[in-house]
């Protein structure tokens, strides 16, 4: 490889994400979401499939039975989890807890995690719940929220990992809703045309496309900054969380609008992605929290800004 200054994910990472995308598209379609929703439960076969792919051990070092990959790859896979609205605790365990344990030199549980025998929902003071547990009910029928412990950790690195992986999932959720809205706009006919032929529909979807495509490089940049341990990583993570949340939320509202009355029903699967989006937009730091961090750094002056500081 030549040395290109390139903030885009590497070809290897993209190839891995593509294989995960293909696997999940085959095994975790909307019919699975409907089935899980109807049964109010989980299907152990889904988790076993993820284990067979090696995904819980993605970031676990090879000597502990994992793949030893980094946050760049993990963020891409988290986006794939968002794309299929995955309800299994993969992201929380494998892409938030594992790197946090590694950062603290806490290796005791890693082999168990890589083998798929253990999931770790980590509480944090920023969240009023734990993702993985019982006792609280989310608007998202597939989320299993538990009550937070009385004295949760406040570790900023854990928060950054959680916010980054949430932003990455939101990218995948947004793209999935974009696909659903585009597919419906091609299919549904009114006034003798597919509604997607009308500019009123086209322009809304185009605006969402702009927001999504310009949120993605920000998320990959945040992953790189956090992976490299840059002192500015928190700023990039907050930027990613705000950009991905705004893009996904706008996409959700546009997608329901394009679907018309059908979008307002439980029969159209869009609601799973929309509800996950609302849930994740507030998780691991609200919009206000992340904007306040940016305010301190950008307006407060701690972070260098301007044309010569693109990669500060």
């Amino acid at each position: 490889m030549t040395m290109l200054m390139d903030p885009a994910p590497s070809a290897d990472a993209l190839a891995l994400a593509t294989s995960v995308r293909e696997y999940l598209a085959e095994t975790h379609g909307p019919e699975v979401l409907r089935r899980l929703d109807a049964a109010s439960g989980r299907d152990p076969a889904i988790w076993q499939g993820l284990v067979a792919m090696g995904l819980p051990g993605l970031m676990v070092p090879e000597d502990a039975g994992g793949m030893g990959l980094g946050l760049e790859e993990a963020a891409l896979i988290a986006a794939e989890c968002g794309r299929v609205c995955l309800a299994e605790p993969l992201v929380d365990t494998a892409f938030i807890a594992v790197p946090w344990l590694l950062a603290h030199g806490d290796t005791a549980l890693l082999a168990d995690i890589a083998a798929g025998n253990r999931t770790i929902p980590l509480p944090h003071a920023i969240n009023p719940w734990v993702d993985g547990g019982e006792g609280l009910h989310s608007v998202d029928p597939l989320r299993r929220l538990g009550t937070a412990p009385s004295d949760p950790p406040t570790d900023p690195h854990l928060l950054n990992l959680g916010a980054l992986m949430t932003a990455a999932q939101l990218v995948g959720l947004a793209e999935a809703m974009q696909d659903q809205a585009v597919a419906y706009a091609k299919l549904r006919e009114q006034f003798g045309q597919p509604i997607g032929a009308f500019q009123a529909i086209k322009h809304q979807l185009a605006s969402c496309t702009v927001a999504i495509e310009f949120a993605k490089p920000v998320v990959w940049q945040a992953a790189a900054a956090l992976a490299a341990g840059r002192s500015s990583a928190a700023i990039h993570v907050s930027h990613a969380k705000v950009a991905a949340s705004d893009a996904a939320w706008a996409m959700a509202e546009t997608a329901i609008q394009v679907h018309g009355a059908m979008g307002y029903t439980y029969e159209v699967d869009l609601h799973f992605w929309m509800k996950r989006t609302w849930a994740l937009c507030g998780a691991w730091g609200s919009r206000a929290f992340h904007l306040a961090r940016l305010d301190d750094a950008i307006i407060g002056g701690a972070h260098p800004i301007g044309p010569e500081h693109t990669f500060a």
Binding site: K202, A206, T209, V210
Partner: peptide, 12 residues
């Protein structure tokens, strides 16, 4: 926006 919708999203 028309170009985006027609060439990137494949709308008619």
């Amino acid at each position: 926006r028309n170009i985006t919708a027609e060439r990137l999203l494949g709308l008619p």
